[in-house]
Simulated scan of single mutants.
Amino acid sequence: MYPNLTGLGIHDPKQIERYSLRQEAHKDVLKIYFHKQKGELFAKSVKFKYPRQIKNVLVDGGTHQYREVTEINRNLTLVIDELNTITRPAKRKETDLKEKILLDLRHLEKVVSSKIHEIEADLEKLK
């Protein structure tokens, strides 16, 4: 189901929690973090380094000037696509956040309404 991750030696992609990607010199460093297992102090992680692809790009056609440009390795993009399908059920996270905000808003409405009634009752006592 995840051929690129399997190619990296990751046989149980469901254990992946998150990943990070950074650039060091002419390499991209991918670090994959796994869910912490019972009894472990720290979650396990693995690190992979991918050399960046170097291309010469024409900057000025009149003077035929080229500039060296680096870009992400194609294999790494395939791995990241697979990781995104595992780690980013973004719709669910957004709806969870939306539900939390709505619950907080409803609670705030109740608190404000209750306080308004309390203040109105105090005003009635002053009459």
Rank of each mutant, 00 (worst) to 15 (best):
Q15Y: 03
L97Q: 15
V111I: 09
K36H: 09
I80G: 01
K125S: 13
N56A: 11
G7W: 11
R106V: 04
I32Y: 04
N75P: 01
D28Y: 00
A43C: 10
F42S: 10
R92Q: 15
I16H: 04
K31F: 04
Y33H: 12
K38A: 15
K14W: 02
T70F: 05
K100E: 15
V29E: 09
H35M: 14
A25C: 01
E109H: 06
Q15S: 08
S20Q: 15
I54E: 02
E24I: 10
S20H: 10
L126N: 03
L58V: 12
T77A: 11
E124I: 08
N84M: 12
K14E: 09
E17H: 01
K98I: 14
Q15W: 04
Q15V: 05
I86A: 02
G61V: 14
E118Q: 01
L102R: 12
N56M: 11
V59P: 00
F34H: 01
Q23A: 02
A90N: 13
L126A: 08
L8M: 05
E82I: 02
E94A: 13
T6V: 13
M1S: 10
K38H: 15
D122A: 10
N84Y: 04
H26T: 07
E118C: 00
D28H: 06
M1D: 08
R88Q: 03
E118Y: 00
V112K: 03
N4D: 11
S20N: 14
H26S: 06
K47L: 14
R74L: 13
I54Q: 05
G9R: 10
A90E: 12
K31C: 11
R22H: 09
L123F: 13
L21F: 06
D12Y: 13
T70P: 00
K44C: 09
H64R: 13
S113F: 06
P13H: 07
L21C: 01
K110S: 04
D81P: 00
I10R: 12
M1P: 08
A90T: 14
K127H: 10
P51E: 13
K31E: 15
L126D: 03
H35I: 11
E120P: 00
I72N: 04
V111K: 11
T77Y: 02
R18V: 07
Y33I: 09
T63F: 11
P51G: 06
K27E: 03
L21N: 03
E118R: 02
E40I: 02
H64C: 08
L83A: 05
E120H: 06
G62T: 14
E71Q: 08
H11Y: 12
R18C: 12
I72W: 01
Q15E: 12
L123D: 05
K44P: 06
L123A: 14
